[in-house]
Simulated scan of single mutants.
Amino acid sequence: MLFYKIAIAAKTDGLFYILRYSKNFDLAVLFLSLIVSLKCIVFLFDNKNLKVDSFSKFAYLIGYIILPFIIITKIPFGIKGYNPNILISIFILIWTNDTFAYLVGKTFGKHKLFERISPKKTIEGFLGGIGFALIGSYFISKYFLMLPEKNTYIWIIIALIVGIFGTIGDLVESKFKRISEKKDSGNIMPGHGGILDRLDSVIFVAPIIFLFYQILSYVS
């Protein structure tokens, strides 16, 4: 029995090793996640499609929620090995973008960004969020990640990804709630729209950043 348990543990560890370090597995997860993200964007701008069929629900569950979380665990490995500060920096940029998009939009917002889906979002808020995220990306790369000056552009691009695709992720989540006639995505975080509302930007941004890392790795 002891040898049987050891054999099972060895097989399990081997499986996790393959899933963690297999390049083909990473690319497969990334490809499927990007396909679903593209489907989400099409769904967002489709005025006629107000229902989600059973297959699409399954695809969204896997590609919109589960696969991005797998990708999130892989992002900290970066190009030069494991660095948890990479993931922390991404969350900081997302929070910076969301916070200043709200503040700038509330103070100066006059032009609606996507009123049909999210009446409170404005173009001014969208640009303000990106602007402060760009500023934050410079300080993160220079003083938190301690990157050389010549590599600052990497986090400037990541800030743009966060600003653009984080907003799209928020709008996609808003449309999901609108067509399901739900105000909140859950009851775990009362007053915050549900836990998925706090993570919608992260799960939409993660595959794009991971794709960017793959491009950087290939070029370098």
Rank of each mutant, 00 (worst) to 15 (best):
S89P: 05
F91I: 14
F91L: 13
I92R: 01
I92V: 14
L93V: 01
L93T: 01
L93P: 01
I94D: 03
I94Q: 02
I94N: 01
W95N: 07
T96F: 14
T96S: 12
N97T: 09
T99W: 05
F100G: 03
F100W: 08
A101M: 07
A101I: 10
Y102K: 00
L103M: 15
T107Q: 10
T107L: 12
F108C: 06
K110L: 12
K110R: 14
H111T: 15
H111Q: 13
H111Y: 10
K112C: 02
K112V: 02
K112P: 00
L113F: 11
L113H: 08
F114C: 15
F114P: 09
S118L: 07
S118Y: 06
S118K: 02
P119L: 12
P119R: 02
K120I: 04
K121D: 13
K121P: 09
T122I: 15
I123T: 14
I123E: 11
E124L: 14
E124H: 05
G125Y: 05
G125S: 02
F126D: 05
F126Q: 04
L127I: 10
G128H: 03
G129V: 05
G129L: 07
G129R: 00
I130D: 11
I130F: 11
G131A: 11
G131Q: 05
F132N: 03
A133Y: 11
A133C: 09
L134A: 02
G136I: 07
G136W: 10
S137K: 09
Y138D: 04
Y138E: 05
I140D: 05
I140V: 03
I140A: 06
I140G: 03
I140S: 06
S141T: 09
K142I: 04
Y143P: 01
Y143L: 05
F144D: 02
L145A: 14
L145F: 08
L145E: 15
M146H: 11
L147K: 15
L147S: 12
P148N: 06
E149F: 09
E149N: 14
K150H: 02
T152A: 12
Y153K: 00
I154Q: 12
I154N: 13
W155Q: 03
I157F: 15
I157W: 14
I157G: 11
I158Y: 15
A159S: 08
L160A: 10
L160Q: 08
I161F: 04
I161H: 04
I161E: 03
V162A: 05
G163D: 08
I164E: 12
I164T: 10
F165Y: 11
F165W: 10
G166F: 07
G166P: 12
T167A: 01
T167D: 05
I168M: 12
G169K: 02
G169F: 00
G169Y: 00
G169W: 00
G169V: 05
G169A: 05
D170T: 10
V172G: 14
